[in-house]
Design a protein around this nucleic acid. Structure first.
Lengths: 221, 221
DNA sequence: ACTAATGTACGAACTGGTGAGTTAGTAATA
DNA sequence: TATTACTAACTCACCAGTTCGTACATTAGT
């Protein structure tokens, strides 16, 4: 982010704090996602950088804070993407399906982010808790869901009694699991959930599931 | 799981290989689940045991193999539980709902197992791949799903064109996510997915979702 | 007596973090 | 313009504390 492209210096070694920080974050993101927080080595991260380990401590303070910074940037990317959601011109059913599909696509396109979130959950979300930035940023996607849901429920199209957060959990769980548990699931059941050939199948399955749930005829009560 | 109830041996230091191994596995399971593979310390695991670090290497060979052994036992517990599934006397709709509920309960009751699976996924399921035991054991639950599904599809009750593995993925994803992503989800959206007061709500939501998906009227095609 | 099981002590390699000094950019001043 | 003064950006070498693993001694059970 904010790469200060200095046009003059072609090859490299100009002094550029923003660039150095961004490079550290790039490498750290890969490393943390690859081997987890405890598994990552500050020395290795530094080695993959064009700068030194000292700079990591200079800019971020420590391994823990570096991980927090990585998380903050990763969540920032998500939020940016969510802000570009443009589905409210559709009817509620189509809008929800489209939203589910975009969530599906986004998870598929950002496996590193999903690994980071898995790792952060193993650590009890302590870095998120420790971060000011990540504390109270509501999800734009949640607002969108809220409005679509209200519209669909008002018109009687949606019969399910869910709120936006729960629906978001439902959609996310499928998208997240498909990527996060790809390896164990594949090893145990012999099916690659992220097989490109099955992509459309699972994308449709998610949409069908969500719409079926929202529009199912409620017999009783 | 396979707790160390040795009835005969009164207090302590009798020589009992099986018991020592089981104790090591108990502690190792907790530690690995708590802080991940790289985060776990062999010395700490040993310290929480009534035996010594030497025994870990004596019986398991090393940290990596210990983790594999922990995984093997954890999956064994799951398989045992799945073998006690008894839902096929119900009609397909009720059977699937019941199966989903049991899966839901099981995930909730074994958060350590879920953490281990998350961790194993971060490591690309390499330990499962390296294990002979975990290689080719089909899931009993999968067989049950397969039969219920076939029955429901034959009778026309189930309109969805899913197979057992995909349905298992769908059910698991919700159950798994609810526990595995509890912390980040709670931190970001302010809702505890594992709040006991919401338990029935989410349990019903899962059942409704799966049944709605399976029985949804397929308009087109 | 013999062996499986167990405990103690130790070390080589690693790991996060830091101390201390250097270089590049920049703006004020002469 | 040249000089000086200042600071952000950076490098290198090292430390203090861990961490996995093992050599060796010892004990319990048969």
């Amino acid at each position: 982010m904010t790469s200060v492209e200095e046009p003059a210096r072609s090859n490299g070694r100009t002094r550029d704090a923003a660039r150095t920080q961004a490079e550290i974050l790039d490498v750290a993101t890969q490393e943390f996602a690859r081997v987890g927080f405890a598994g990552a080595r500050v020395d290795d991260i530094a080695a993959r950088t064009s700068t030194t380990k000292r700079m990591i401590y200079y800019y971020f303070g420590g391994k823990e804070q570096l991980f927090t910074a990585v998380l903050e940037r990763a969540y920032g990317v998500i939020r940016e993407a969510e802000q570009e959601l443009d589905v409210e011109h559709l009817d509620p059913v189509a809008a929800i399906r489209r939203l589910a599909e975009l969530t599906f696509d986004h998870h598929e396109q950002h496996p590193d982010f999903i690994r980071l979130v898995s790792i952060e959950n193993i650590h009890g979300a302590e870095h998120i808790a420790a971060s000011e930035k990540l504390g109270k940023i509501g999800s734009p996607a949640l607002d969108v869901i809220r409005r679509i849901l209200a519209s669909g429920q008002r018109s009687g199209l949606f019969t399910a009694d869910v709120d936006a957060v729960d629906l978001h959990a439902m959609i996310s769980s499928f998208c997240f699991f498909r990527v996060s548990n790809r390896h164990t699931f594949g090893a145990l059941f012999g099916r690659d959930l992220v097989d490109p050939a099955q992509r459309e199948h699972y994308r449709a399955m998610l949409g069908d599931m969500v719409i079926a749930y929202l529009t199912a005829p409620r017999a009783e009560a």
